[in-house]
């Protein structure tokens, strides 16, 4: 059996399509627990900030530390299941670190005036980062990013300021948890 170059090119193209689809689904699956984790952190962090605004700084410091440590544990658990480190999943931990650094540095330089700005800014950055990741890694990330950004902006302009933290806890954190669960489906 001898193949023509056209047949060979077509076969290669079919293989490449399957490879891309597999890599995309694999990345969704690997990153799903991280989204659920950070969604939960948002629920606790924003909810806690709404309930106990005086302690919000301590709360977020603790939650960010827990989030980063849990991310490392999740990654190690996966490696312990017999697989080597994922090709791109580790970058999510790096992405979280970059977002935390960027938000902290921008707060320091720009110094927001209102608590709502403190609240909305990291969510906008996170949503935008997901959209950017999605350009390379798949449409579901773009959808998750758009949802987070749109809900954050909607709440910022249309929700009563004293309820905004709870809005971000339920809708912002909730949308990330839902996105994480969606990523687990085939």
């Amino acid at each position: 059996m001898t193949l023509s170059s056209e047949e060979a090119a077509k076969t290669l193209s079919q293989a490449e399509d399957a490879r891309k689809r597999s890599a995309e689904l694999y990345f969704y699956h690997r990153s799903s627990p991280h989204l659920i984790l950070w969604g939960t952190i948002w629920v606790i962090g924003y909810g806690g900030t709404g309930l106990f605004p005086a302690y919000s700084g301590y709360l977020w410091d603790a939650l960010v530390l827990i989030g980063v440590a849990s991310g490392v544990v999740i990654g190690r658990c996966r490696s312990g299941q017999g697989s080597t480190a994922g090709p791109r999943a580790w970058r999510l931990a790096a992405l979280a670190a970059i977002i935390i650094f960027f938000v902290s540095a921008t707060y320091r330089i720009m110094q927001p005036h209102y608590s709502l700005q403190f609240c909305a800014y990291p969510a906008l950055i996170t949503g935008s980062a997901y959209m950017a990741v999605g350009l390379w890694s798949g449409l579901r990330y773009v959808v998750a990013g758009v949802a987070v950004v749109a809900l954050t902006l909607f709440g910022f302009y249309f929700i009563e300021p004293h309820l905004y933290f709870f809005w971000m806890a339920v809708v912002g954190g909730g949308s990330m948890i839902l996105a994480g669960l969606w990523f687990r489906t085939v």
Binding site: A15, A18, R19, S22, Y26, G82, S83, T84
Partner: peptide, 17 residues
């Protein structure tokens, strides 16, 4: 079988699907 192999090759070594 080509698609099966391509899908598996996209994963890190030792990773099942």
């Amino acid at each position: 079988r080509l698609k099966i192999m391509a899908a598996l090759k996209a994963l890190p070594a030792g990773e099942p699907i």
